[in-house]
Simulated scan of single mutants.
Amino acid sequence: MSEKIIVGLSGGVDSSVSLKILHEKGCNVEALFMKNWDEDDENSGCNAKEDLEYAEDACKKLNVKLHTANFSDEYWNNIFLNFIDSYKKGLTPNPDILCNKFIKFKVFIDHARSLGAKKIATGHYAKIASENSRFFLTTPKDSKKDQTYFLHTLDQNQLSKVIFPLSDIEKEKVKKIAKNFGFKSYDKKESMGICFIGNKKFKKFISSYIKNIPGEIVNENNVVIGKHNGMFYTTIGQREGIGIGGMKGAKNLPWYVYKKDLENNKLYVCQGNNNPLLFHKSIFIKDLELITDSIDSILERNLLCQVRHLGEKYFCSIEKINKNLFRVDSNELIRAPAQGQSLVIFDDNKCLGGGIITNG
């Protein structure tokens, strides 16, 4: 019998079809349903009970063994506490990236090994290739579902143990396969936003963990025009929820956050979606991690960078400032890069890695 592969089964259509694809290829597959968050709220978007029912449905139809595991302690310690700490500092973190690095492609891999498997598979839309015994990550066939941004921190060891069955399939075909086979998940609504928050109101959720520290809202002329309830409620480029309405003497344009003065707890805003204050040609990053290339090999090359999942990719070059600080320069204007977000680097369709946006 071939080597065992454990498929991470979330209950969604993508992981269910991934399991089916490997099963039809004759692979020796079993599945694992992971619970990473203890709170279970039907209205939160993280209904683990329902998700498990969908996972059980897929395994029953394929006659595949389903394992379950609770990684909520690992998630709390490695992801959630980091998330809260970052928001307390006024940053804009992305816990999904940390979840992939430390839970889905570390804790899961270790657990799969304990079940006798040397490889895992997930329903991510990304592609793994190899050259000269080195693995690298590239964009999938379905560019609209590309998840390489979230996977850019995976290392050689992790990539060597992972299979992405959906790398060459578009989402519409995935849904059609699921529907034709009778998976309950074929029309299941996709999860949106941060997993442990789901569809909850973000402000209400985050205020349970972080104390409000109200401060001033200041315009580009350093004039106080309002009050904010807490720096952690906002991110660079944000429009909604700032709490500024029409003002006498101001332009009839929406307000956007363009700067956060963390030391003085001031929120700076400007008017207009295309206001120059929202755009930058140089961005500083720290904690640069690369999948295959060495740091020296990417310096001053013509590359691409992306500051948001499925966001525009900008031509750029990278300069090393010191051991843990790099400047990413672009001839194009990059809109609203936020401290704490990841900047991911590409060479055409090859994902090289990325770093965390910071001050210079």
Results as ranks from 00 to 15, higher is better:
287 D>F: 10
259 K>N: 10
244 I>R: 02
257 V>Y: 03
254 P>Q: 03
279 F>M: 06
281 K>V: 07
233 Y>F: 15
229 N>H: 14
236 I>P: 00
300 E>M: 13
299 L>I: 13
237 G>S: 03
265 N>F: 05
234 T>C: 14
259 K>Y: 12
299 L>Y: 12
266 K>D: 04
232 F>Y: 11
306 Q>P: 03
301 R>Y: 10
278 L>V: 11
258 Y>H: 10
234 T>L: 15
270 C>T: 11
244 I>D: 04
250 A>H: 13
252 N>K: 14
239 R>V: 05
230 G>R: 02
250 A>W: 09
304 L>W: 07
259 K>Q: 10
227 K>L: 14
243 G>N: 02
285 I>P: 00
281 K>C: 09
269 V>I: 14
239 R>Y: 05
278 L>N: 00
301 R>M: 13
267 L>D: 02
269 V>Q: 11
245 G>E: 06
258 Y>G: 06
303 L>C: 05
246 G>R: 14
294 S>F: 09
244 I>G: 02
236 I>D: 02
253 L>Y: 05
291 I>D: 01
251 K>G: 04
265 N>R: 10
294 S>N: 15
244 I>F: 03
232 F>M: 10
240 E>I: 09
229 N>K: 15
241 G>V: 04
252 N>E: 08
295 I>F: 09
299 L>N: 12
304 L>P: 03
241 G>I: 05
276 P>T: 07
254 P>H: 08
236 I>R: 01
284 F>G: 12
258 Y>C: 03
307 V>L: 07
303 L>W: 01
262 L>E: 05
287 D>L: 04
289 E>T: 14
299 L>Q: 12
306 Q>H: 11
274 N>F: 06
282 S>F: 11
293 D>K: 11
289 E>K: 14
305 C>D: 01
253 L>D: 04
288 L>T: 02
248 K>R: 13
246 G>T: 08
298 I>T: 04
244 I>E: 00
234 T>G: 11
239 R>M: 11
267 L>M: 06
240 E>P: 01
227 K>G: 05
254 P>C: 09
270 C>Q: 00
288 L>A: 02
266 K>H: 09
287 D>H: 07
